[in-house]
Amino acid sequence: MTSKIKNFPGTPLSESDFTEGKVLSIHDEMRPQFAWDTGIGIGSYLAALKEGYLLGSHCKTCEKTVIPPRTVCEWCFDPMDSYVRLEDTGTINTFSLCYVTWDVQRITEPELPAVIEIDGASPLHGILHKLGEVKPEDIHIGMKVQAVWKPAEEREGAITDILYFKPIKEAGS
C-alpha cells in the first residue's frame, strides 16, 4: 500500500511561516499554580532533609531498604512503616554532563545530574541529584560522594536542602 501512494497528507511548515505571520496562530500562556501535599512517606523524608539527614524505609519480610521512604512495599504490598536513617554518602550509579536546561536554553558550564546509590539502602537504590565541587572530566561511575547541605537555618524541607553531592577524598589518593 505505501509503495503505491505518492502524496501523503501532512503539510510541513517552517519556522518563518510563524515568525513572519504567513499562517495564523493563537498564542496563549498558562500560569497554573499548585500546592502538593507531601503525604506520610515523603513528608517524613522532607522533615529529615530539614534536619540534615537522609531517611529510607525498610520491609522486614522482603529485606529491602528504599529511598525515598514510602508507606507501601512494592514487593509484598504490606505496609513499609519502619523508617531508617541512612548515611548521606553514596556511590555514583550513573551521571551526565548536560548542556541544555529543562526549558531548552543552551549553557556552557554543564549541569551534572547523577543517580547516587545511597549507603545503607538496598543495592542499586539511588536518588536523582546533582554533583558539585568536581571537574566534569574527573567524574566516574563508582565514585564515592557525600551530600553538601545548606546551612541549617536555610533548610526548608526540600530535596534542594542538599545543594549537591561532592567526591569523598579517598585515603591515599
Binding site: 548536560c98 541544555v100 536546561t101 545530574p113 536518588i127 536523582l128 526540600a158 530535596i159 534542594t160
Partner: peptide, 8 residues
Amino acid sequence: TERALLPN
C-alpha cells in the same frame, strides 16, 4: 523529590 532540581 525531583522537579525542584529542574530536570530535563
